[in-house]
């Protein structure tokens, strides 16, 4: 579904964010991208939603070269993606319902479809009762649920989450992760960039580890740190 072929990204200021990255993410997969700040996690996600284009190599989405897309085709790529951020990016002057409706309205969806779809996703993320709350009236966890609902509202095939639990306490983080896992079981491919080691260790999903722009590990059912000891401890626990 998503394939990186020897992708390197060098920013205009000379920073090399990614070096010769080759990975493949299959349809329906759940994968973590881990690594310290500045290791290239965000850049990897940005390549998929075409915020960044590769300096070398290719990023393919369903066989299509994302870097070669014309600017006017980018919106149609993004409609296949749902994107979630650490800072939620909810519109502060709109309530939850309006935030979701906005995401559907600006791609020209019919008001009838909007009403139906919003109640579906709000139910899925457990925010049905909070649909008329404004972001400032909600907890961080609720805001992230609303942001996930917005990401899902247009039926994306892939959900990209960039540090989705960076602003949340451990319990709430875990709830959000379970929600993402639930979404994944419905068939949506989920890719999460994070440096939350507890979560990664607990989830036991595929882990792609970046270090200074290089993929240093790509492991099924991995932990945050590549250590047999940790694995043993976790499995034993």
């Amino acid at each position: 579904m998503i394939r990186f072929d020897n992708v390197s990204v060098e920013y205009p200021n000379g920073v090399r964010a990614l070096n010769d990255v080759s990975i493949h993410i299959a349809k329906g997969e759940f994968a973590f991208v881990v690594g310290p700040t500045g290791s290239g996690k965000s850049t990897l996600l940005k390549l998929i939603y075409r915020e960044v284009t590769p300096t070398r190599g290719r990023v393919l989405f369903d066989g299509e070269d994302i870097g070669a897309l014309k600017a006017n085709q980018v919106p149609y790529l993004r409609r296949k993606l749902g994107i979630v951020f650490q800072d939620f990016k909810l519109l502060p002057q709109k309530n939850v319902w309006e935030n979701l409706a906005f995401a559907m309205r600006v791609i020209g969806r019919h008001p009838r479809d909007i009403r139906r779809r919003i109640s579906e996703v709000l139910n899925l993320v457990g925010l049905t009762k909070r649909c008329d709350a404004f972001p400032h009236q909600m907890s961080g966890g609720e805001q992230q649920r609303a942001a996930i609902a917005r990401a899902l509202v247009n039926h994306p095939t892939v959900l990209l989450a960039d540090e989705p639990t960076g602003n949340l306490d451990p319990d709430t983080s875990w709830e959000i992760m379970q929600l993402l896992e639930q979404i994944n079981t419905h068939g949506t491919t989920v890719l999460v960039a994070t440096h939350d080691s507890q979560i990664v260790d607990r989830m036991r999903k595929r882990v792609i580890q970046l270090e200074a722009g290089y993929v240093v590990r790509d492991q099924e059912k991995g932990a945050y740190q590549h250590s047999t000891l940790t694995e043993d401890l976790c499995c034993g626990a």
Partner: peptide
């Protein structure tokens, strides 16, 4: 700018923005 950014991220065409 946040509103415009979100519109771009959810795939609104430039014309729609």
């Amino acid at each position: 700018r946040l509103e415009i950014k979100i519109m771009q991220l959810v795939g609104a065409t430039n014309q729609f923005i």
